[in-house]
């Protein structure tokens, strides 16, 4: 590059600054402040006393209530991630191997629900699962269940809601990796006498592993932080971490404790995501 070109590089690089300033101000500063708050002490009269203590973290990880909420959240997130993976893989494979017009339409049909907010989709599930909902009407019409079956406000409803929210992410992540696997490899294995299941297990799955890892990590994070779906489909008795964090700010105004809960949620999500990734990758290269 000549002199003038190098000089011209500097103003171009400066174009990144407005965005960087905005993100530093609106993301980094709030997160630093939130962390600082988590080290303060809650006081019912003054709201907050400046301090540097790990007390909020300790009381959060020893409180049986929050341990139970965290356990519920992790169980739900693991379950939903596994279901999304099992259901998403065939769908992603089909999408990846499609061609032309149909592929474009199916891709749109996958991205579209992802863009429609979680609240709208939860409203849809409430319409379907309520005591007078479509599913119960169908069950009644079938004559097998004369009385309404309790579907809403159950963990099953939450799982169904979350799985359908995260499935498009899983399908798109997997499909983008599967598209890169040459079809010829599968055909070669088939021609050499491998059964379809063996081809899947020995050829497709190992090559799609980066997609499985990326998709599962993304979906797991989304599940751990689900907010609208557990509130609307789980009802007041079913509590997951994200709503519990907000309650500390809205209902009890215990900000230091709420801030600590937020960082615990962030840390647990990150730790489990990394652990899951390590586990999957070890499978790939057995020692």
């Amino acid at each position: 590059m000549n002199e003038s070109g190098r000089a011209a590089g500097r103003p171009v690089a400066a174009l990144v600054l407005p965005a960087v300033v905005l993100v530093l101000l609106m993301m980094v500063a709030p997160m630093v402040l939130l962390f600082r708050y988590s080290l303060n002490i809650f006081s019912p009269t003054e709201l907050m006393i400046q301090a540097l203590t790990a007390r909020n973290y300790l009381s959060a990880v020893t409180d049986p209530y929050y341990l139970a909420v965290m356990a519920t959240t992790i169980r739900m997130a693991v379950l939903c991630t596994l279901i999304a993976l099992a259901a998403g893989f065939p769908a992603a494979y089909t999408l990846a191997r499609m061609r032309g017009r149909w592929k474009a339409w199916l891709t749109l049909a996958t991205v579209f629900p992802l863009m429609v907010g979680n609240v709208v989709r939860a409203a849809g599930w409430m319409t379907l699962l309520g005591n007078a909902g479509l599913l119960n009407a169908a069950l009644k019409a079938s004559g097998l269940f004369p009385d309404p079956v309790q579907l809403m406000y159950t963990p099953m409803a939450v799982a169904l809601g979350i799985v359908t929210v995260v499935l498009p992410y899983m399908i798109l992540t997997l499909a983008s990796v599967i598209e890169g696997i040459p079809r010829g490899l599968e055909e070669a294995a088939l021609n050499l006498g491998a059964r379809p299941l063996t081809v899947f297990r020995r050829v497709v799955l190992p090559l799609a592993l980066p997609g499985v890892v990326a998709g599962s990590a993304l979906v797991f994070i989304l599940c751990m932080n689900a907010y609208a779906t557990p509130i609307l489909l789980g009802g007041p008795q079913f509590t997951m971490m994200a709503p519990a964090v907000y309650d500390q700010f809205v209902k009890t105004t215990n900000w230091p404790f709420g801030a600590a809960l937020a960082f615990i949620l962030l840390a647990v999500t990150l730790a489990l995501t990394l652990a899951g990734r390590a586990l999957l990758q070890r499978r790939r290269h057995p020692a």
């Binding site: 993301m27 709030p30 997160m31 402040l33 939130l34 994070i221 751990m224 932080n225 907010y227 994200a242 964090v245 907000y246 700010f249 709420g258 801030a259 937020a262 960082f263 949620l265 962030l266 999500t269």
Partner: peptide, 9 residues
């Protein structure tokens, strides 16, 4: 960053 955490921040 999860929306809930960033929202509280």
């Amino acid at each position: 960053i999860p929306g809930v955490v960033l929202g509280t921040g």
